[in-house]
Design a protein around this nucleic acid. Structure first.
Lengths: 214, 214
DNA sequence: GAAAGTATGTTGTAATTACAACATTTTGGG
DNA sequence: CCCAAAATGTTGTAATTACAACATACTTTC
């Protein structure tokens, strides 16, 4: 198991190597590999597992009965997912989680939190609070990205956020066209078309997933 | 100050009256009244205040420069807001918070958490974790309500969620037409029109904010 | 490096939504 | 009870998007 990625995670911030090893054991840490496209969780499932991405990436998404996909979040290496469901273990998942690329996930049992001693547990809970709080901001961000009524507005809202995060007018995005379309809740073809127009209008330049705001 | 509402809140779950009184003092609890329409927080502000609604309700919303409003959440009596920003005190707010009706808010300083003794603080943090986790599910819910591309789909997604929550096919919603439109990210007139059609099609019945799914 | 498969770009049409303008209903004071 | 103001409903038109169908470009594999 790749302990170095876990070591640098928010969850184990402030814990030393020995403590982390013990915690991994206490929380029944289990690692599993998935191929691109594999489904890790399906809507309706119940889980108490806090999930950590040690390699690759996954999408948290909603798929309706007509095959329309909405991507809520892309979770990359070093980040967590399913924390809300893990901490509220009677709530069935509202989302699917799929491997966006080949990936490796470490599952941690939150049911086992009760077995930890008070001191360790409260340090862990404090870190979990940071994780959920940041996740809140992430979910809010997506709301702003999908708030504009028009496609161009959504694209600009998203690109501006990424630009600010990366402190640069030039950056890569983690989505391919279909994923970006599903994240912004628009048609892929309409997205491609609008990106072309925005380049003609001199607003942006882009090639594949590399973007520049002008 | 209306201590009974606070007493039943998630934040103070497990605390007795004496402890709550001490905590309110330690967290510099301050109460303030707002008239309908008043702005409680503006986008860009920084705060360390956890906010609790003791009367009335507020909307967490985003207002763009063209006057378009997007409602992310309606926070009613007995619920909290701004918890993410209170806990990440260097992050400027991405949203506005407005009084949806005349309301009363209690502000609790999260900066003061460090002054509490370890035991009390960790109990409080555990409760805060519940608050943020539930808020996560709320934000996810809205994503599902706005995921359908068409207005009718959004309305049904929202009404179904409320129906499930209230365990009944007949229920009141907390939004008026304009608020519901801004929550679902559609035009008010288009929403009204679609609701009429849905009634003609025998899908629902509604009058003001009372709905019935058929 | 050719072929097959996947991702992205382009275009046209049908369907839907945005927006404005106005009609009707409801609400809250006087 | 009446009036003014606010909320909700209705309608038509312009603008935008969804969807399908196809073209082009890029990748992967043999």
């Amino acid at each position: 198991m790749d302990i170095s990625v876990l070591h640098n995670s928010i969850l184990f911030k402030g814990f030393d190597d020995t403590e982390i090893s013990e915690l991994l054991k206490a929380l029944n840490a289990a690692e599993k590999k998935y191929n691109k496209g594999a489904m890790i969780f399906s809507s309706g499932e119940i889980t108490d597992k806090l999930c950590f991405v040690t390699a690759g990436s996954v999408t948290v998404e909603s798929n309706d009965m007509w095959g329309n996909r909405t991507i809520l979040n892309l979770v990359g290496k070093g980040q967590f997912f399913a924390e809300s469901y893990a901490l509220l273990p009677d709530v069935p998942m509202l989302v699917d989680v799929c491997a966006a690329e080949d990936c490796t996930i470490v599952f941690l049992s939150m049911k086992s939190l009760v077995n930890l001693n008070d001191m360790i547990r409260s340090r862990l809970l404090a870190n979990l609070l940071t994780i959920t709080t940041r996740k809140n901001l992430h979910l809010s961000s997506r709301s702003f990205h999908t708030a504009p009524r028009q496609v161009r507005g959504r694209i600009m809202a998203y690109l501006n956020t990424v630009s600010v995060q990366k402190h640069s007018r030039e950056f890569d995005i983690p989505f391919d066209r279909q994923q970006l379309a599903d994240y912004l809740n628009v048609e892929r073809s309409v997205l491609s078309n609008e990106l072309s127009k925005m380049q003609k209008d001199g607003l942006i330049r882009c090639r594949k997933n590399h973007f520049e705001i002008i």
